[in-house]
Design a protein around this nucleic acid. Structure first.
Lengths: 169, 169
DNA sequence: TGCCGTCCCATAGTATCCCATGAATTCCCA
DNA sequence: TGGGAATTCATGGGATACTATGGGACGGCA
């Protein structure tokens, strides 16, 4: 799997650890076969009460574009602050768990259970109920947006042949 | 067969497994000869109480446009959450069975028996009675609409045969 | 020296793989 | 064209591997 898919719920223990879902671990491994693949960059989402998790390689490619900016420009300054200042690199232990920084736990309002929400190239970590609300909202907004993806209209004209059972043709 | 046709009923066992109908398995194989072909993406239908099953290659082509979107845009956020967060990749075991995630079983209200409904390029998984109702409804609406398919307009007499069903309750 | 963070080990529960069986279908040959 | 044999399909169950989670030990820093 090259993408983070699905929603998975795990428990945050007293030490602030959570198991990264096995499916996500597999995706991470496939992203970077070396050691960087296991790495993650955690940062607070700017738009939602949740933690954004970036695979290290993807985050690096993101910052490369930033590195091309003039070091003394305002643009660089702002972007750098927005991107780096709140970012925490984490690494999974041998059991595949990561430790969530307190600041991020607070930002996402996490308690005992947390859910990992796959968003394709990245994933997010949510408080379970907030995550459910968010999915609901995203669905509504995506629909309002007109589902601007080619082919997303489910099940087109194929219904013209509803049943073809026991064909003796 | 390159399309999913017909309606097939199989049993969901205690472990949450179902056999994918052999005809659908053949279609899947022909879609992607490599490894991706055997893969399926399951997601809850947003419009019906059923599970939508997408062949992995088709789902990928669907998401390619999404992957080109700016990761920080609202559009990406909403669409990614709507598309990916409820999507579960599954792979058939050597007997051709897949495991349905609990969340999707709940969404579709599945119990002992499930129905696979071919919709051409994708298929759906239904609770049997709900599936029957759905076919009924689709049939009625299609008829009301005059079964107008683009390109099918100059309909010869043959198309007037709307349904050839072997009725079983 | 005490506290905190990290690493490592242990375990229960669960999911995955694999083999086995009955039934139905298809194919082949008479 | 009919009968028989070999496949294929759908389903059940057991063994194995893995995941998730808890707790303890070690080392670093204050």
């Amino acid at each position: 799997m090259t993408h983070f898919l699905g929603t998975h719920q795990n428990k945050l223990d007293a030490k602030g650890r959570v198991s990264v879902p096995a499916a996500f671990r597999a995706a991470l491994r496939s992203l970077g076969e070396g050691e960087a693949g296991g790495g993650l960059i955690l940062r607070p989402s700017h738009t939602h009460p949740c933690i954004e998790a970036w695979p290290a390689p993807l985050f690096q490619s993101l910052t490369q574009s930033l590195d091309r900016l003039d070091l003394f420009s305002e643009a660089h300054d702002d972007l750098a602050a927005a991107l780096y200042a709140d970012a925490y690199p984490v690494e999974a232990d041998r059991e595949g768990r990561i430790v969530l920084p307190d600041a991020l736990i607070a930002h996402a309002g996490l308690s005992e259970s947390v859910v990992f929400m796959g968003l394709g190239r990245i994933f997010q970590i949510w408080e379970p109920e907030a995550a459910a609300r968010r999915r609901e909202e995203a669905r509504a907004r995506a629909r309002a947006r007109g589902l601007t993806l080619p082919g997303l209209a489910p099940a087109p004209a194929a219904t013209s042949r509803p049943v073809a059972e026991g064909g003796h043709g």
